[in-house]
């Protein structure tokens, strides 16, 4: 069975005026289907307001859908009684690194999750050690989070989730507030977790470069899943992506423009490496 299985999820935000009367409804999720297998790396793309963060918050029951079904790790997420089991198996990392670190010392923050789960002290120490190791932050264990860079803080937040030993991590735009270096740091850390510890990864982002490595990509627009497939399938449809106000990776865009200008390049080029190779073989063919 799939790790996450969503069918026809629907969620609405109710807008109210100052007296509390309903002004209007904003459909954030509109019959969304989602399938994620254990150990997969799934990316969810979409511009601001497409509903991708709302979807993320459903996956560990920070929000509950009004209609539809959602199964996470074999448990019904529409049943409020499963909330702690689901949050234990599906961790979440948020956008702002400062606003998700609870403690004033790195290792104590990483311990926050296991402490909440009631893990015995000795085991907490082991988990903190392991999870700090897995994101390469052991050296900073007794530092104050305020003195770390954005990328480091985000890695601490990831370690904090890892210490709860979840089967899946949902990352809600984890790199949106980071500089390019921090972005690379964080992505390398989570991809290593996916490869080595077989943690299921759900990455929500609007940076196209980040999803090239994903196994599967979902594209969302105004609450609906409008495209799904492998990165190659998705990025070969440049025109459609533009319609949803999404960029494509620069290499893909260049290949697309070159092809439009009459060059014979294959569709769905994702990286500079692939583009360079395609161009070289073109040149040799002449």
């Amino acid at each position: 069975m799939n790790f996450i299985k969503a069918r026809k999820l629907k969620f609405e935000y109710i807008r109210r005026d100052e007296e509390g009367n309903v002004e209007g409804l904003l459909t954030a999720l509109d019959s969304v289907d989602l399938d994620v297998r254990q150990g997969e790396f799934v990316a969810i793309l979409g511009h601001n307001g497409s509903g991708k963060s709302t979807l993320a918050k459903h996956l560990n029951m920070l929000l509950q859908a009004e209609e539809g079904t959602l199964w996470v790790d074999g448990k019904d997420a529409m049943d409020g009684g499963n909330v702690w089991d689901i949050r234990k198996s599906t961790g979440m990392v948020f956008q702002n690194p400062d606003n998700q670190i609870v403690a004033s010392v790195v290792e104590e923050d990483v311990a926050f999750g296991p402490e909440n789960l009631g893990i015995p002290t000795g085991e907490i120490w082991k988990r903190v050690e392991n999870s700090l190791q897995s994101v390469g932050m052991v050296r900073y264990r007794s530092h104050s989070p305020n003195k770390l860079s954005g990328g480091q803080k985000q890695r601490v937040a990831i370690a904090g989730v890892m210490a709860m030993e979840p089967k899946c991590i949902v990352l809600d735009e984890p790199t949106a507030m980071l500089d390019p270096n921090g972005r690379r740091e964080v992505l390398e850390a989570v991809q290593a977790l996916n490869r080595e510890k077989e943690v299921t990864l759900i990455l929500i982002t609007h940076y196209m470069e980040e999803v090239v490595q994903a196994d599967k990509v979902y594209v969302m627009d105004s609450g609906k899943v409008v495209m799904q497939g492998t990165p190659r399938e998705i990025f070969s449809q440049v025109d459609r992506l533009k319609k949803y106000r999404l960029d494509v990776p620069q290499a893909t865009l260049l290949a697309y423009e070159l092809r439009k200008a009459g060059m014979d390049l294959p569709e769905g080029i994702l990286t500079w490496q692939e583009l360079a190779e395609a161009l070289c073989s073109q040149y040799q063919a002449r």
Binding site: L62, K88, M92, F94, N96, F112, G113, M164
Partner: peptide, 11 residues
């Protein structure tokens, strides 16, 4: 944000 992050970590 923090309240949400704490809840997500089973607080």
């Amino acid at each position: 944000d923090l309240a949400m992050a704490m809840e997500a970590r089973c607080y």
